[in-house]
Design a protein around this nucleic acid. Sequence first.
DNA 1: AACATAATATACCAATTGGTATATTATTCG
DNA 2: CGAATAATATACCAATTGGTATATTATGTT
Lengths: 198, 198
Amino acid sequence: MYTKAEKTTEFIIETVAPIFNKNGYAATSLSDITKATGLTKGAIYGNFKNKEELAVAAFTMTVKSMLRRITEHQSLSSSPIQKLFLISDFYRNYYNFSQELGGCPVLNMGVDAKHQNSALFNYVQYTINKIQNNLALLIDQGKELQEIKPNIDSQLYAKRLYTMIIGAIFMTHTMEDNSYLLQTMDQIDTMIQSELNL
Amino acid sequence: MYTKAEKTTEFIIETVAPIFNKNGYAATSLSDITKATGLTKGAIYGNFKNKEELAVAAFTMTVKSMLRRITEHQSLSSSPIQKLFLISDFYRNYYNFSQELGGCPVLNMGVDAKHQNSALFNYVQYTINKIQNNLALLIDQGKELQEIKPNIDSQLYAKRLYTMIIGAIFMTHTMEDNSYLLQTMDQIDTMIQSELNL
DNA sequence: AACATAATATACCAATTGGTATATTATTCG
DNA sequence: CGAATAATATACCAATTGGTATATTATGTT
């Protein structure tokens, strides 16, 4: 079982995460936090050292829950190239999913933390590398299983794919138009089919 | 000639624009503004109604100077398809250029203003539409001059191109790695060559 | 049930926030 | 040059900021 405090800590993080994600670090005040949680500053500062530590915890949680969902979705197939298609499939539903999180954490914190908070910004970079390495790994595994053309540069191709994905995420959220994500995923599927597929 | 006040107004906008662009609306305080300009609040509020009006003026200026540079660069050729190549060429140097502006205004304000300031956010959407329409127009003109395949959906293709461009801008700024922009522009050139070019 | 401790609330802090009314200084033009 | 006005500085405002010390309440253990 969890102690009272552990549950409170979790509750604070989950309540506050979409607020930080939406508004950014600086624009989220402690009164926003106390108002949303219904707790007082005493409770917040009893569970977190300061605002920054809470923001990092909230962002970490959001990213983890996002990565978990991608990983889950990939596990629907064991074939590397099919996993790539499942990733594009995942992002087809990303507008709805990320709205629940308060937006895409990678995009929002990448822009917001750049000149505000180096701890958060470093974690964004780390997360992007993780996502890209996962993509590159799938391509390499596809090559080994002779599903994917052997001459493909997996790191370069992974960068290319994630660049398109994050561009589509920005456009869909900013233009409030899901078609950017859908069309980009169509484009990515075509690329996988014609450029990667053996 | 310009009056003293007009020059001061311009001076404030130009000094403050990269600060708003870097930090976002909420994280830029009036003391940041007075410190950077060396002026007092009296001078600032003599030239602008409030912080929001100044932020909008600053963002507008930054966007206009960016759009002017793209337009200038396009004028190096009169051929629509060559203008498309010149656009990708422009974005090859965009990391340096946008760093002078304090980052890409479309990207930064698109993320920052979304939940903070609807005036700014609407202007971001308007700007993106403008850029996209320009791209679509070039494609249409290319079709008329029989430089570009007639069956291309110009609006869809313009969306596709700008999605990739803004994705590359985000990645280059966030990963602090210019290769994202360079590789995406290579990819775009290849697309123009193989998918658009007649 | 009583006690020790953990968790939360209260009340406060100095500093800063955006903004304004008024005083002072520059500028422009007759 | 001098007066009218435009532009900037000063001094202030209430509200809010992140944070803390202490008081109070809840929880778990014997």
